[in-house]
Amino acid sequence: MTTPATPATPATPGTPAAPLSPVAQAFEKAASEQRAAVVGYLPAGFPSVDGAITAAVAMAESGVDVLEIGLPYSDPLIDGPVIQEAVHAALTNGTHVGDVLRTVEAATAAGVPTLVMTYWNPIDHYGVAAFARDLAAAGGAGLITPDLPPEEAGPWIEASDRYGLDRVFLVAPSSTRERIQTVTAVCRGFVYAASLMGITGTRATVSDQAAGLVSKVRDYTRLPVAVGLGVRDGAQAAQVAGFADGVIVGTAFVQRLLNAPSPDEGIAAVRALAADLAAGARAGSQAAHASPAAPSPAASPAAAANPAAAAGS
């Protein structure tokens, strides 16, 4: 591990002169190739620490642009049954914070900027500044914090400035314009737009609230906007790519690992999904550029025709 570079002055989000973070660069690269970025989530420690590392590297090699490594937590308040099961298994296997950092290090080494997705208490308990220091030392790109509102984030904002880390906060369909302004003002890297009101898990169709939310977010920030919650396949990724800069997929990856009869088949399924999502993210984005007036350029007939196919979450 290397000593983290400490900027002499805090990076200011939104300032044109600020150097782009690795995550922002990944979004920029995807945009320059006329495609949405694919952001993939996996919890550390599932099915084992090394198994998760293998899966994360497979995702990086198969089309995922940005990785989110989940820090397993005992009370995953906004996760559905699939991620709950994986996280529970990870904790039962004895996954520790050190394992999460090791996973981040390995994923980053595979060439993909890697964020940690975490409920706030484990970070609070570790010590915000200490965690930022150790995450930066592991090569991590920053944090996604689903239960930390900007109002309570003072110490994290300070620590992320000090260690040059991204901080991704969430906006939701229920967020008021005032809230969107408050949240996006402190985001760095990208803005996480929750596509629907609910917990993590795949859905049969992409929520019709997502496009409107992304459009509202764009009134307040030039940061990339990625859409998460409910996306399960390439067809849905294509739909999202029609209006967003990134597609976030978690449960569908975890489900592949849960369903696999063997570890090797799990990795193969993860690779296939990553490739499917990447193809969808490219097709949807290019269709949108070709006909910007079309509201839903890559609507998924398969998903729309078969709402009962919603995966078990």
């Binding site: 239960d147 967020s175 949240v183």
Partner: peptide, 20 residues
């Protein structure tokens, strides 16, 4: 005004619940 009892309390809710 934001629900703090000293340093305790506050609101650590998911953004989806903030409006409510």
């Amino acid at each position: 005004a934001t629900g703090h009892f000293g340093i305790y309390g506050g609101s650590f809710a998911p953004e989806a619940l903030t409006a409510a």
